[in-house]
Structure formats: C-alpha cells, structure tokens
Simulated scan of single mutants.
Amino acid sequence: MKTTVEIQNLKCSGCESTIARKLHTLKGIRDVLVNTNNCTVSFNYDTSDGIETVEKELTRLGYPLVNDQNNLQRKVKSYVSCALGRIQND
C-alpha cells in the first residue's frame, strides 16, 4: 500500500537524505520519496504496522507529523539529522 504523510522541520536536501536513508532500512518499507517543497514523505509499505513504524522513525529523527507535538528537543534532533545528511551527501 502507498501513503503520504506531511511532516514538520523538513528544511533541505540534508534532511531529505537522512529521512530517505533511514526509512529505506525499515522492514517492509520501500519506494521512499521525500518532497522538500511540500514537506511530505511518500512510501509503500507491506506490513500492517508500516505507517506507525515510519511515523515513529520520523519522530525519532526530529520530523514529527504535522499536528504532532514539535518541541525544542525534536527541532534540535532535526538539525542534527539534517547535518548528518549533508555530511553524507558530500
């Protein structure tokens, strides 16, 4: 099944890189597409808990879903994830 979620704190290609790389490692998740223009992540999932698994990983990385709590800790995590994504792109 395919779905798209809208997330917070998505700023640039560094964020995009980190999100795509991490989500591709999740079991049953494939065809991940991160869109920085509209702050969405689209993916296909094969497991019954695929959406929840992706949502948890996004939040862990600092990119909670729109309407979820976006506290300072999550914002800081997103900056770290972004920096790591930029470093790994170079």
Score class of each variant (00 low, 15 high):
Ser13Pro: 00
Leu84Glu: 12
Ile51Arg: 03
Lys77Thr: 09
Tyr79Ile: 15
Leu58Trp: 01
Asp31Arg: 06
Arg21Phe: 10
Leu10Cys: 07
Asp46Phe: 14
Arg86Val: 13
Gln69Glu: 13
Leu23Pro: 03
Lys75Trp: 15
Asn70Cys: 07
Arg21Gln: 06
Cys39Phe: 14
Asn44Asp: 15
Ile7Ser: 04
Thr40Arg: 00
Asp68Thr: 12
Gly62Val: 04
Arg86Pro: 04
Ser42Pro: 07
Val32Pro: 02
Ala83Trp: 11
Ile87Pro: 04
Leu84Phe: 10
Arg86Asn: 13
Ser78His: 00
Thr4Ala: 07
Ser42Gly: 09
Asp46Lys: 09
Ser48Arg: 08
Thr53Gln: 11
Asn37Tyr: 14
Lys27Ala: 06
Met1Glu: 07
Thr47Met: 10
Val54Asp: 02
Val80Ile: 15
Asn35Asp: 11
Asn89His: 01
Val76Asp: 06
Ile29Ala: 02
Met1Phe: 14
Met1Gly: 15
Ser78Trp: 01
Tyr63Phe: 13
Asn89Met: 10
Thr25Phe: 03
Arg60Phe: 13
Asn38Tyr: 09
Asn67Tyr: 13
Glu6Asn: 09
Arg30Asn: 12
Leu23Tyr: 05
Asn37Gly: 12
Asn38Gln: 02
Asp90Pro: 10
Val32Phe: 00
Lys27Gly: 06
Thr40Val: 04
Asn35Trp: 09
Val5Asp: 07
Ile7Asp: 01
Leu58Glu: 00
Ser17Val: 10
Ser42Tyr: 04
Arg30Asp: 15
Asp46Cys: 11
Cys12Thr: 05
Thr36Glu: 04
Ile51Glu: 09
Val32Gly: 04
Val54Ala: 02
Arg74Met: 12
Leu10Ile: 12
Thr40Leu: 00
Thr4Cys: 07
Ser13Arg: 00
Gly14Ile: 10
Asn67Val: 11
Arg30Phe: 15
Leu26Met: 09
Gly14Ser: 03
Ile29Trp: 03
Arg21Asn: 08
Lys2Phe: 12
Gln73Thr: 15
Leu84Val: 12
Leu33Gln: 11
Glu55Gly: 02
Cys15Phe: 00
Val34Ile: 03
Thr25Glu: 09
Thr18Glu: 09
Tyr79Pro: 02
Glu55Lys: 07
Thr47Leu: 11
Val76Gln: 06
Thr4Gly: 06
Gly62His: 02
Asn44Cys: 14
Gln73Ser: 15
Ile19Phe: 02
Ile29His: 02
Leu58Lys: 02
Ile29Cys: 04
Leu84Arg: 00
Phe43Ser: 01
Thr59Glu: 10
Leu26Gly: 05
Leu26Ala: 05
Cys39Lys: 12
Lys22Gln: 08
Phe43Cys: 05
Met1Pro: 14
Ser13His: 01
Glu52Ala: 14
Ala20Thr: 14
Asp49Leu: 08
Thr59Ile: 07
Ser13Tyr: 01
Ile51Cys: 01
Glu55Val: 15
Thr18Trp: 00
Asn35Glu: 02
Leu26Asp: 05
His24Gly: 11
Gly14Asn: 02
Arg60Asp: 13
Tyr79Asp: 04
Cys15Lys: 02
Gly50Phe: 14
Cys12Leu: 13
Lys22Arg: 06
Cys12Trp: 07
Thr25Arg: 06
Val80Cys: 05
Val5Ile: 14
Gly50Asp: 07
